[in-house]
Structure formats: C-alpha cells, structure tokens
Simulated scan of single mutants.
Amino acid sequence: MSFNNLDQLYRQVIMDHYKKPRNKGKIEDGALTVDMNNPTCGDQIHLTMNVEDGIVTDAKFEGEGCSISMASASMMTQAIKGKDIDTAIKLSKIFSDMMQGNEYPDDLDLGDIEALQGVSKFPARIKCATLAWKAMEKGLKEEK
C-alpha cells in the first residue's frame, strides 16, 4: 500500500472514531473519575473507569475537542477495557513513545491506534492525541 493510501486510510479511521465515538458517555456510581484539559487548544476530557480486582472493566469519556483528541479518547477506551492496570499504563507509555516518533514493539498490534502515528509529525497536535491517555494513566496510578 502506498504512503498516500495509508495516510488516507488513517485519516478515515480517525474521522470514524471522531464521528462515531466508542464508549462515549459516563459511568455512574463509584467510578474512577479524571478530568483533564489541554489549555493550548481547549480540549477537555472527563474520563470514567470501573476497575475491579485490578482490571479495567469499563471506560467511558465525555469531552470537547478536536477530531484527534476525541478519536484518541475513543480508541484509548477500547484499548484498555479488559486490561489489568499495569498493562493499561504500559500501553499509555507505548502510545506516548509513538507520539514522540519512537518505535514500538513489532509484535504489538495497536489496531486503530496506529492511525494516530502521523500526529507525531505535528508537535502542536501531540498534546491533543495524548490527553485522554494521560488522564487514564493518572487515574489508574491513583487507583493502584
């Protein structure tokens, strides 16, 4: 697949998550809650997660922001469901490395998250992509 076709595919994946976000909403009743914002561009996230026996059993988000920020939140909530806290935090660190343009393990299938690789070429947008991930990491570290 040529670079242009791959770039177009990635844009389509991002727009799909932006227009039809997965796990949009809020978990009530005792959920772990984290609110964060990106003052640079105005992105805001309200992340709620259920953690039972060290496993993220559910994750939802509400917020406002650009397509990259909201698509990333959608992808992140999908990625962490069913993962233990340490694995979710490790995934956040891998994502952060990817946003810095660093390689990640070849045997790791990031699924739709790979569509955000191109953001690393736009330093001003990296904070948009990492906002939800930082919120998740903060919440899970506090939970731990």
Rank of each mutant, 00 (worst) to 15 (best):
G111I: 10
P105D: 07
K81T: 10
D16Y: 14
I27Y: 13
M36G: 15
I85Y: 08
V56K: 03
V34C: 07
S67E: 12
P105K: 01
I27G: 11
M98F: 04
F95W: 05
Y10R: 07
L116Y: 09
L110T: 09
N5T: 08
H17E: 06
K26T: 15
C66E: 01
G54A: 02
A59D: 10
V34A: 04
M75P: 09
D43Y: 01
I89H: 00
I80C: 00
P105F: 07
G82H: 05
D109P: 10
M136C: 14
N37R: 14
K121S: 14
D35L: 13
E62D: 14
S2A: 05
C128R: 09
I45S: 01
G65H: 11
L108M: 15
V13H: 04
K127Q: 13
M98A: 05
M70R: 15
A71K: 09
T87H: 11
N38R: 07
K127D: 12
L110W: 10
D16N: 13
G118I: 06
M1P: 13
L108G: 10
T57P: 03
S67W: 07
N23F: 11
Q78L: 11
E62C: 01
I55K: 06
K24A: 15
I80T: 00
G118P: 10
Y10M: 06
D35N: 15
S72A: 13
T130N: 02
F3M: 14
M15K: 04
S72E: 07
K20A: 14
L116F: 13
D107H: 12
E114K: 15
I126S: 02
T40H: 09
I45N: 08
A129C: 10
D35Y: 15
T77S: 06
M99D: 05
K83Q: 15
V56Q: 09
H46R: 11
N38M: 05
S120L: 04
G65W: 08
G101W: 00
Q44P: 00
D58H: 09
K127G: 06
S67C: 11
F3W: 12
S96V: 07
T57Q: 04
A129P: 08
D29R: 13
A73N: 10
G63S: 01
V119E: 10
K144P: 08
T57L: 02
F3G: 01
D58R: 02
I68L: 06
L110E: 11
V119K: 04
V13F: 07
D86S: 10
M99C: 07
V119R: 07
N102W: 00
G42E: 13
D84Y: 04
E137M: 06
K121V: 10
E103M: 11
A59Y: 03
D107I: 01
D7L: 11
K19N: 15
V13S: 07
A124W: 08
M1N: 09
P105W: 00
I68P: 05
H46G: 01
C66N: 03
A132K: 12
S2I: 08
T77W: 02
I126H: 02
G42Y: 05
D43P: 00
V56E: 13
A124G: 13
S2C: 06
K19Y: 14
D112M: 12
L32K: 06
F122P: 04
F3K: 13
G54P: 00
F3T: 10
